[in-house]
Design a protein around this nucleic acid. Structure first.
Lengths: 250, 250
DNA sequence: GTTGGCCTTATTGTATCCATTTTTCCACAT
DNA sequence: ATGTGGAAAAATGGATACAATAAGGCCAAC
């Protein structure tokens, strides 16, 4: 039987369910499925070389996380989102990240966190200093940016705050991944804001850290919303989702 | 075949999965399973008169929501939580509810919302005015309290804010449900705080509404944490979870 | 008497099967 | 030509069968 051989083909992992979940999340995040499109369980099962059971399990998890929407007897589809969604998300994020910065400044950073903090700030500075501006640099910047904020979240030392932040992180990431680059000016300002935030946290100024971080997130949100509105406009003019995104990003 | 008869026994609902999810949530919320206890899929399937498939689906959803924890090859168990968890949750809630109150005061209430607002405040006042203090009154107060805050959340008009609040609402509810009563003084103060908050929102004072609401939630959290610490202390002295809770609540 | 290892048992994880529902598409009538 | 009805196809929802892993108990050896 062919299906037996599949199970022993690549690995000997105990449970493939989690693996499938990650794979699905990647598929969606990287844009293999456009927002609103329906996910065929059979198709996914075949693509991932497992049966429908673990696929369905993963789908229900992703739906609970808000990445997918579920309609009884109609299955799962990628959650569509509008610039309105992004606006609302960033309003919440500004509050939550502000809180994280406040707590981080109040509680102080561990030596390890301070080390990571400095390293990331320096790398970020190097990235915007150089003239190259290709996909690699762009992706690297995204990583550094995420890591910078992650240190603050961690330093806030509140698991539920982190959870709430992660919850609201999926969709913006989802939207950002479709832009191939950022403009340099935007990143330079972002870096400067990071430096200021860092200063406030390291000098233990909670309320200054909070307002700076909050403003920083809010501004990022404004930029993303503006870009996304342009994409929506193109879609309204008849372009399909993918081509609208690509033409704006390329 | 007996299993066939079961499926046609009670209802003709299209999908039982959602139904099962709600039933499970109720079972956990009402304390049929203590925190930390493992959930046997077979047992649940038999109790709910369905096969393991919808049960597993519901379990994975509840796990994604944070009500259960999942360990590969060990299944699902009710998420244990400590007074530390409650502290962290209420810190986040103070921020989120404060934000909701700020937005509600900024955007203003619709006529319908204003009506519900007044009605709930009045009912809350009547509840604390009377001398009866049994389970019914207590449960009614919980409902009124929830509804009062729900109006504010709704008025904030931000779906992701509401989502984040709901996320952090499960565990406190979970903890509160185990107390059979509140002391009267605590509720009287709570009601007075509600009146003040209401005043700030209706008079369109965003920052006052925010700080009042934030303080209100923070105080509620302190009270719940204090009570929960007493329960933890009893458990540490050897009592099992249930008896510790009951002795404190009765 | 205690401890370590093995074997049985119970429970989870995955695959497949069947019923029900939705969707699609084509024929037919207006 | 277009809209509607209905039948066929496909996809989801749920049940069961089987495999794999973990848990617990029992026996033996020290």
């Amino acid at each position: 039987m062919s299906f037996m051989s599949l199970r022993h083909e690549g690995n000997d992992m105990a449970t493939r369910g989690l693996e499938v979940g990650r794979a699905l999340r990647d598929l969606i995040a990287t844009g293999a499925y456009a927002p609103g499109s329906r996910l065929n369980e059979n198709e996914l099962a075949i693509a991932l070389k497992v049966s429908r059971t673990p696929v369905r399990s993963a789908l229900s998890t992703l739906a609970a996380e808000g990445l997918l929407v579920y309609r009884p007897n109609s299955g799962y589809s990628v959650r569509p989102f509008s610039s309105r969604d992004i606006e609302e998300i960033y309003a919440v994020r500004a509050e939550l990240d502000g809180m994280a910065a406040r707590l981080a400044a109040f509680k102080g950073l561990s030596d390890q966190q301070r080390g990571a903090h400095h390293r990331l700030l320096q790398e970020s500075g190097e990235l915007i200093a150089q003239d190259r501006w290709d996909d690699d640099v762009c992706q690297r910047w995204r990583q550094v940016n995420s890591a910078f904020h992650a240190v603050i979240h961690e330093a806030a030392n509140n698991a539920y705050l982190v959870q709430a932040i992660h919850q609201t992180d999926e969709i913006p990431f989802f939207a950002l991944i479709r832009f191939k680059w950022y403009d340099k000016e935007m990143l330079r300002r972002s870096h400067e804001e990071h430096v200021e935030i860092s200063d406030a946290i390291l000098n233990r100024q909670p309320s200054r850290a909070e307002s700076l971080e909050s403003e920083h997130v809010y501004r990022s949100g404004r930029r993303l919303v503006a870009n996304w509105r342009r994409i929506e406009e193109q879609i309204r003019r008849g372009k399909c989702f993918e081509s609208a995104v690509l033409s704006d990003a390329a």
